[in-house]
Amino acid sequence: MNNPLQFDVDTLTRYLAVHVPGLQGPVTIEKFAGGQSNPTFLLTTPGGRYVLRRQPPGTLLKSAHAVDREFRVLAALRETPVPVARALHLCEDRDVIGSLFYVMSYEDGETFWDPALPELSVERRGAYYDALIETMAALHDVDVEAVGLSDYGRASHYFARQIDLWTAQYRAAQTDDLDAMEKLIAWLPAHCPAESGKPTLVHGDFRIDNFIFERGVPRVRAVLDWELSTLGNPLADLAYFCMCLRLPRQGHIAGLAGLERAALGVPGEDAIVAQYCRLRGIDAIENWNFYLAFSFFRLASIAQGVKKRALGGNASNDKARQVGEMAGPLAQMGVELI
């Protein structure tokens, strides 16, 4: 095949007809525009629509593209207040389409790519942010033992381990010498706050385009993209969400830098943090800049991984090289916080 992301539709259809109850061909397949890390496809059949997420082909970084973990967390959260798609089948037989994949339900709704929410009136935007923060708080309140996820990750020393992990991922994907990344790699371990509070389930990529909302209603229908989820410190999700709002307007991931949020009807960072703390019964958050700096560092490492895959011809999106070039600027934004 000329395109390494293609696969044999007939082989996949025969497999799914056996393993996904109610799914019968013919199947038409359309790739979603998103899904930098794990290519994602819409499957349309006579009986309904489904979503398939697969690992990309080629050599993969260790622990990356863990679609099996995504499937597990979706299945575990099905009976909780956290809205997710239904996990239908995990295929670990790489002979079917060339890599691991899973199938989940298709959740119809609205997805917003711009945190400024230009599709909505100023008066409506705040309610959508409220729904996001309420969903975050609900996620962090999930009893991981009750849903069978107590072994989903090593909960202790979360940030220390994450710094080691993303440093290793960055080194494995490194193509250039980025002075800002070297500064963060040196500073973050030396300033890691003492862990306190009960570890929770952490989403790992909590930004507005990873949510499907009910059409016309400020209510989350499904939380998407659980590849980076694990057990750890819930402040990682909160800081990551606020970090995304600090990003510049131009770029693969749009931010709100330079915009007057009050005029937009979008809450400021202080209001978002205050709402989260209120919902979870937290008095205050110390060392906030550490959590933000870590978020920029981790996103820079992810961007570097995308760049490496693009150079190797294994990226899942035509804009992968543009994403990869964000590594340096993201690291510099992290340095400015320290």
Score class of each variant (00 low, 15 high):
N3S: 08
L5W: 00
T13G: 08
T13H: 08
R14I: 08
Y15V: 00
L16F: 02
K31W: 00
A33D: 05
Q36L: 15
T40E: 02
L42C: 12
L42T: 07
T44I: 07
G48F: 08
R49N: 15
R54G: 05
R54T: 12
G58F: 04
L60R: 12
S63F: 12
H65D: 11
A76I: 06
A76S: 13
R78I: 07
T80K: 10
T80E: 01
A85P: 15
R86A: 14
L88W: 04
C91D: 10
V96T: 01
G98M: 00
G98D: 00
S99E: 07
Y102K: 04
S105M: 01
S105Y: 01
E107K: 03
W113L: 13
P118Y: 10
E119N: 13
R124Q: 15
G126T: 09
A127F: 13
A127V: 08
L132P: 01
I133Q: 01
H140K: 06
H140F: 03
V142H: 04
D143P: 11
G153N: 10
H157T: 10
Y158P: 09
A160M: 10
Q162T: 04
Q174I: 00
T175L: 15
A180N: 03
M181L: 14
A186Y: 02
H191S: 05
H191R: 06
H191Y: 07
C192Q: 11
E195S: 13
V202D: 12
G204M: 08
G204R: 13
D205F: 05
D205W: 06
F206S: 02
R207S: 02
E214I: 00
V217R: 15
V217Q: 15
V217N: 13
R221M: 08
R221I: 06
A222Q: 09
A222D: 07
L224V: 01
L224K: 09
E227G: 07
G232F: 05
G232P: 10
Y240V: 03
Y240F: 15
F241H: 14
F241Q: 07
C242H: 05
H252R: 07
G258P: 08
A263K: 14
L264Y: 10
G268Q: 02
G268C: 02
A271S: 12
C277A: 07
R278C: 05
R278S: 12
R280Q: 06
I282Q: 03
A284L: 02
I285T: 08
E286Q: 14
Y291I: 04
Y291G: 12
S295R: 06
S295N: 09
S295E: 09
F297Y: 14
L299R: 06
A303C: 15
N314I: 01
N317P: 06
D318P: 13
D318Q: 03
K319C: 06
R321D: 15
Q322G: 11
E325M: 14
E325G: 09
A327G: 14
A327Y: 05
G328Y: 00
A331I: 01
A331T: 01
A331S: 13
Q332V: 02
Q332D: 09
V335E: 09
L337H: 12
I338D: 11
